[in-house]
Simulated assay, not measured.
Amino acid sequence: MTRPATLPDAVVAALRCPLCSAPFGLDGRSLRCPSRHSFDLAKQGYVNLLHAGVAAGTADTAEMVAARVAFLAAGHYAGLRDAIAQVTAHADGLVVDAGAGTGYYLAGVLDRLPGAAGLALDVSALALRRAAKAHPRLGAVVWNLWEHWPVASEAASVVLNVFAPRNGAEFRRVLRPGGTLLVVSPERGHLAELASVAPVLEVDSRKEERLDAALSDHFELVSRNALRERVTLKPDDVRNAVLMGPTGHHPARLAALPEVTEPAEVTFAFSLSEYRRTV
């Protein structure tokens, strides 16, 4: 019989109780703090530390998660995953992925870091069911990134943020001095060819400038690299690319999507920005 997934020791050590901020211990299948607050691990291995609900349209739905799993399994973002792993190849401690989704990118980082553990934070329990099993040294925790994170200060050597909300103050708090923040965002033209299939948000031409300004109180930019590629997507991949994005939160838009019967040539365009925590 397969043993249920659980949390790595390094992840348990870094977590803090969201009710009293005390350290946790793992007691069987439950996280418990000295104040006797307790949070049970789901059978899939993740733990939900949220003590409040989230607004509708915030967390990925089952359909969005399934589309993302299928799209990533086809290898379309393998180049991006490799680029992220290369930038973070120096890490020697805990890697926190803020907005980890299914854990695809964090697992790629951990594959290159045999001594590291990973903490996947995301508001979607459905996505974290996948993340909890994405890598044996990965722990998955349901959390709202806009709230104070249930993570010890200066616990991480790296924070990843891939297409996810950015909480600069929490990025800085959980990173140790000299720690690295890697932010991945779409560049102008990313998936623009899919506009004929679904509404595609145009990337702000000043996006990087605004990103730097938003993080300037806590970080300094170390490097920025662009990754751009032209690929041909099969019809199923086109639909999955649409479903796993913001359109997936709008059932009416999904119902109105035209049938895709032909392959489509599209642009992948990403920006990888590496920041160093200011002391």
Rank of each mutant, 00 (worst) to 15 (best):
G189Y: 04
V95H: 13
E208I: 08
L49M: 11
A107I: 12
A241Q: 07
L15N: 10
V109H: 01
T180G: 03
P8Y: 02
V69I: 12
D92S: 14
E147K: 15
V141Y: 03
V142S: 09
L227N: 02
A131L: 13
L31F: 06
P199S: 07
A264I: 04
S196H: 09
A117G: 11
R32S: 05
G53N: 03
A156D: 06
V12F: 11
R253M: 04
V162N: 09
L181H: 00
V69D: 11
D92P: 04
P186E: 12
V260T: 07
D97V: 03
Y46W: 02
V231L: 14
V174S: 03
Y275G: 01
E202M: 10
V260A: 08
V69L: 10
P150C: 06
E170C: 01
T2E: 09
A74F: 10
R210V: 03
V109F: 06
L221K: 13
L175C: 06
G53P: 00
A132V: 05
A14G: 09
Q44E: 12
R3E: 10
A155P: 07
S273P: 05
G79T: 14
A98S: 04
L49C: 07
A131E: 14
M244N: 10
R3C: 00
G101W: 10
L31Q: 05
L94T: 06
C17H: 00
R32M: 11
A22C: 07
T88Q: 02
R253P: 02
D60H: 05
R210Q: 12
A226E: 14
H190N: 14
L19V: 12
L194R: 07
A78W: 00
W146A: 01
K234R: 10
A56Q: 15
D212P: 00
T261K: 12
H90R: 15
V183R: 04
E229I: 01
A127Y: 07
D92E: 15
D82Q: 05
A264H: 06
L201M: 15
L94Q: 08
E229N: 01
L94K: 08
E262G: 07
A56I: 12
G99C: 02
D122N: 06
A66L: 11
T6C: 03
F219D: 07
A98Y: 02
R130S: 13
E170N: 01
A226T: 10
P246C: 00
P136N: 10
L175N: 05
E63W: 14
F71N: 03
G245A: 14
L19Y: 05
L221M: 14
W143Q: 05
Q86A: 10
L160K: 01
L201Q: 14
P165L: 04
G53E: 04
A125Y: 03
L257H: 01
T102G: 11
N167S: 04
A152C: 13
H51I: 15
R129A: 08
R16W: 11
V158C: 01
L49A: 08
R29L: 08
E229M: 00
A195F: 14
R276N: 09
A67H: 08
H249N: 02
V203G: 01
A89N: 08
A73I: 08
A10E: 11
A195V: 15
M64C: 12
F71L: 12
E187Y: 03
P18N: 03
G28Y: 00
V279I: 07
L254P: 13
V231R: 15
V95R: 13
S21D: 14
